[in-house]
Write a protein that binds this DNA or RNA. Sequence first.
DNA 1: AATATGAAGTCAATTAAACTGACCAATTTT
DNA 2: AAAATTGGTCAGTTTAATTGACTTCATATT
Lengths: 158, 158
Amino acid sequence: MPKTPRRHQEDLASLFSLGFSALNEELHERLNELGFGDFRPMHGFLFQGLIPDGATAKTLVELLGISKQAVSQMLDYLEERGYVVRKPHPSDGRGKLVVLTERGQALMKAKESIYSTIESRWGAIIGNDRLQMMRSDLKRIIESVSEGDAPKKLRPSW
Amino acid sequence: MPKTPRRHQEDLASLFSLGFSALNEELHERLNELGFGDFRPMHGFLFQGLIPDGATAKTLVELLGISKQAVSQMLDYLEERGYVVRKPHPSDGRGKLVVLTERGQALMKAKESIYSTIESRWGAIIGNDRLQMMRSDLKRIIESVSEGDAPKKLRPSW
DNA sequence: AATATGAAGTCAATTAAACTGACCAATTTT
DNA sequence: AAAATTGGTCAGTTTAATTGACTTCATATT
């Protein structure tokens, strides 16, 4: 019974993508168990822009690389479900400051904890030193890439 | 002028995502210059399933983790533009075998070449040994993750 | 051999999440 | 004080996914 040839993805793009998928799928499974089932993968990218002090929609647009209307819709969704609030902006009357609610912060805490569990499991596989190496090498590469160019969008586009 | 605080993404999920974005954006810029402007990022994942001998839609569905109708639509798109052909399946009259055309193969070659250019640039940043380490560590992690579990989808979902 | 069940793929209609365009209110520039 | 710019929303549109219904061929059960 010739089952699943299990072809090997060798190129870095596939490896990054699979690595991300692995992290992300487990994260959202766990979050779902914790009652955050309405939090979708894309929202994680947005949340990255909200720590530690909140952000304007403008900032999120730049971070995510999507239209401001799309950001606004996502914020509606997240606000309805109690993850974020739009406050008036302290210094700019046009703008609004989006901040995490208690619930949003609880989710971020859960996220940290879940990631750290996964990462320590990964550390057991390749060694903690190697995992740290990977992290710091990746950081260097990404810094270097986003130097000359326009800074890369956090969210991959496809 | 407090410009772009350049906050640092430290967690692996962000790093993988940014790494993927960097690769992918440059890839598609170059492909566009080479006349493959109608080839979209998502199609790259599908192509991975077609090498070396083609595949059925069924297989692609499993690989990509999307509905068979969605795969069928993507194939329509790619077939119209001359990247793939649907042939009758040699041993199963229901199925069709999707294979790369000349043009599709040319694109794959271009892709290889572009990735290898980028990777050698990255090798210059962190050292080739470290880049190989990253690649092999990633492979080990991904193998290990997809062992017990259902195998991870190639395409991240968000 | 006949029929039932399942699998591969397509057609059609729908939904979701992005998009563009038009606009308002507040700010900054001249 | 206009004029131009900026942050954000409202409305309508496109696109890529979805689900549902169906056809054809394959496999299993009598």
